[in-house]
């Protein structure tokens, strides 16, 4: 709705919404992984990561891609950060051995979704400029792959929520 109103005002790109979404998504996921990883990762490091990302995001808006262009390097940065945290979560459950059945935990499915979605889309994020220069059919074909991965991500998030509701104390 906001985007439609924005376009009616004569703007040709919804990129500002995407920039806002990126910052919100990254900070929320950092907070979520902070809860999932608990004491196994110093909250100080997560705060530093969040602040660094926010600074990079602001720099990109101010002197980089700008507000009206699609982000070129901020999305890969976010992907690297979140994939690293997902891998860290897997390492945590493997080393601690506390979680008896990871497939029945919220954290496992969130990390699985993050790992599959962000690693699968990494090439697209890195070469987003190249992709946006392609012709309509080729551009659409690549974005269909992206859409399939997005659907997969939200299906996996649904599983995570199901387990969180069934077993609220599991991480």
């Amino acid at each position: 709705m906001l985007a439609l109103a924005w376009m009616k005002l004569g703007n040709t790109s919804t990129a500002p919404f995407f920039h806002g979404y990126l910052l919100f998504e990254c900070l929320m996921m950092l907070r979520l992984f902070g809860l999932l990883l608990g004491k196994s990762i110093a909250s100080r490091w997560l705060r530093v990561a969040g602040a660094t990302f926010a600074l990079a995001w602001f720099t990109n808006l101010a002197v980089g891609d700008g507000l009206m262009a699609l982000p070129t390097w901020i999305r890969p940065l976010e992907a690297i950060l979140l994939v690293s945290l997902a891998v860290r979560y897997f390492l945590k459950i493997m080393s601690e051995g506390v979680v008896r059945n990871p497939a029945k935990t919220f954290g496992f499915w969130v990390s699985t979704g993050v790992l599959i979605f962000f690693s699968g889309n990494m090439l697209l994020f890195v070469f987003s400029k190249t992709v946006s220069d392609l012709s309509g059919r080729a551009y659409l074909a690549i974005w269909e792959v992206h859409a399939a991965l997005a659907i997969l991500l939200y299906l996996i998030y649904t599983l995570a929520i199901v387990w969180a509701r069934k077993n609220p104390t599991s991480s």
């Binding site: 897997f90 790992l115 090439l123 697209l124 080729a138 690549i142 792959v145 991965l149």
Partner: peptide, 22 residues
């Protein structure tokens, strides 16, 4: 462009399979 789409699709599939393997 077909080659680019193919490269993207195959790479994404391979990476997703790798993530599933992990």
């Amino acid at each position: 462009e077909s080659d680019i789409v193919l490269i993207f699709t195959v790479s994404a599939t391979l990476i997703v399979l790798l993530a599933i393997a992990v």
